[in-house]
Amino acid sequence: MAHHQSAKKRIRQDEKKRVHNKYFAKTMRNAVRDLRAISEKEAATAEYPKVVSMIDRLAKKNLIHKNKAANLKSKLAAHISKL
């Protein structure tokens, strides 16, 4: 258990950041799932830039690894091209 005031504050801040980051990571996963579920090429093409932007923002903040972001974008682009 933390005994110093600064350690207690750090615990509070870390918990807030964890919840915040968890929300954005879950939102991104839902967006990727929804994009993969789209079966019309026009709708998927319209949605793709929004999802890519979301993935890039999370990679920039180090919530996901840059290589994971690249892999996700690549697989989504391949999925859209197959439609």
Rank of each mutant, 00 (worst) to 15 (best):
A70Y: 08
A37W: 02
K17I: 07
E15M: 08
K16M: 12
T45V: 10
Y48I: 05
Y23N: 08
K8N: 07
K66N: 07
R10L: 14
R29P: 05
V52C: 07
H65I: 03
D34E: 14
K22C: 05
I55F: 01
M28N: 02
E40Q: 12
A78K: 15
K22T: 10
K82I: 07
A78G: 06
A46Y: 05
K68C: 01
K61A: 12
L83H: 04
D14V: 04
S6H: 11
I80Q: 04
K16Y: 12
Y23M: 11
R18L: 10
H20Y: 13
L35T: 05
V52F: 03
R18Y: 08
M54T: 11
V32R: 01
R29A: 08
K22Y: 06
I11P: 01
A69W: 00
S53H: 12
R18D: 07
I80L: 12
A70M: 02
A59I: 03
L72P: 00
L72G: 00
A43F: 02
E15D: 09
L58I: 03
K26H: 08
A77E: 13
H79S: 12
I64N: 01
K41C: 04
R36S: 03
A44P: 00
H65F: 07
R57E: 09
D14W: 07
A77M: 11
A31S: 15
E15C: 06
A7H: 09
N62W: 05
V52I: 14
H65S: 12
N67C: 04
A25Q: 13
I11F: 15
E40N: 13
R18N: 05
S53G: 15
T27C: 11
A2C: 09
V19F: 05
A46Q: 09
A44Y: 00
E15Q: 10
A69Y: 01
S53E: 09
A25G: 02
R36V: 05
S53T: 11
K68M: 09
K16I: 11
T27P: 00
K75D: 08
S6E: 13
R18T: 07
A78Y: 07
N30T: 11
Y48T: 00
E40P: 01
N62G: 06
N62I: 06
A7K: 10
L76W: 03
D14C: 07
V52A: 05
K17P: 04
A77P: 03
A59G: 10
T45P: 02
L58P: 02
M54L: 14
A44Q: 01
N67R: 09
A59P: 02
E40I: 05
K41E: 08
K50I: 08
N21V: 03
L63M: 15
A70E: 12
S53K: 11
I11M: 10
A69M: 03
M28A: 11
K61T: 06
I80P: 02
S74D: 09
H65G: 15
R29E: 10
N71I: 06
N21C: 01
K73P: 02
H20A: 14
E40T: 10
A44W: 00
K82T: 11
S39G: 06
K75V: 03
F24Q: 10
